[in-house]
Amino acid sequence: MIVIKCPSCHEDRHEEELEYGGEADVVRPTPPDGASDETWTDYLFMRTNTKGVHYEQWCCRAGCGQWFKVARHTVSHEVAEVIRYEDRFAYQKEGGE
């Protein structure tokens, strides 16, 4: 059972209360129109499939609804680090169009 302390509401959340969002830091090619077929399909389908520490996205679905990033060991399920997205984006806001 994976238990992660949500960095936003600071509660221990069990995996049943969480939503898994796959590998973190998969970069969406911008602009997509400029990406080759290969770059784009790599973005769609290719993942690292790490055995070991894996950075991935989780959402506090049954709690506060916030997404965050987690470093999880894919064999032991040990959660080494939990990162709030707003920390990551704190000084790089992209404006509207």
């Binding site: 969002g21 916030q66 997404w67 997205y85 707003e86 984006f89 806001k93 992209e94 404006g95």
Partner: peptide, 17 residues
């Protein structure tokens, strides 16, 4: 609703929305 919120939080957190 969850789909919109996910993109807002994880990809476009800078958007004022």
């Amino acid at each position: 609703a969850a789909w919109l919120e996910r993109w807002r939080q994880t990809e476009w957190p800078g958007m004022r929305v």
